[in-house]
Amino acid sequence: MEIWKSSRWPARHAVRRALVFNPYLPPEVGAKIVPLLNSTDLAELASDSSVPPSLREQATRLLTQGPIGG
């Protein structure tokens, strides 16, 4: 949680990815990170059974919707 609250670390892709794939991250925090991931990460997240189902579903929705406005 402290890493996510920091102004420095969440800007780094590797940190966002590590946080969202952490099964102990609260889902409400993960839900804020998922839209910041790239399509490769979203696809991996959508099939990762170690993360909460709500995050997998969110990743799947984002993958099927495609880019905003597209």
Rank of each mutant, 00 (worst) to 15 (best):
A43G: 13
L63F: 01
V20Q: 10
E44C: 06
E57L: 04
V51C: 03
V15H: 14
L19D: 08
L19Y: 15
S49L: 14
N38G: 06
L55S: 03
D41S: 15
F21E: 07
S6L: 03
G30K: 13
R61N: 05
L62K: 02
V29F: 03
L55Y: 08
N22V: 03
L36F: 08
K5I: 04
P10N: 11
D41M: 02
N38Q: 10
N38Y: 02
S50Y: 08
S50F: 08
A18R: 15
A11H: 13
S54L: 09
L36W: 06
P53D: 10
E44W: 01
P53W: 07
S7I: 05
A43E: 13
E57M: 03
G66P: 06
A31S: 06
T64S: 07
P10Q: 13
S54A: 13
D48I: 04
K5E: 13
H13V: 05
T60R: 10
R16K: 15
V15W: 15
R17G: 04
R12T: 06
V29L: 07
V20P: 00
V20L: 10
E28Q: 14
T64I: 00
Q58N: 02
S39G: 04
S49A: 14
P52F: 09
V51T: 09
I33T: 04
S49G: 12
P26G: 06
E44M: 05
L45C: 11
N38K: 14
A14N: 14
G30P: 00
P23C: 11
P27S: 07
W9L: 11
S50C: 02
K32A: 04
A31D: 08
D48P: 07
P53N: 05
V51I: 09
A18V: 02
E44S: 12
D48W: 00
E57V: 01
L45N: 12
A11L: 08
P23W: 09
Q65I: 00
D41E: 13
G66L: 01
A59F: 03
T40I: 07
S6F: 05
R61P: 02
E44A: 14
V15L: 10
A59W: 02
Q65G: 04
R61G: 03
T40D: 12
E28V: 00
R61V: 00
R16F: 14
T64G: 01
Q58R: 04
A46F: 02
V51K: 05
L36Q: 12
S47K: 08
R12K: 15
R61A: 00
R8T: 15
F21N: 10
G66V: 00
P10T: 13
N38P: 00
T40R: 12
R56M: 05
L62C: 01
D41I: 00
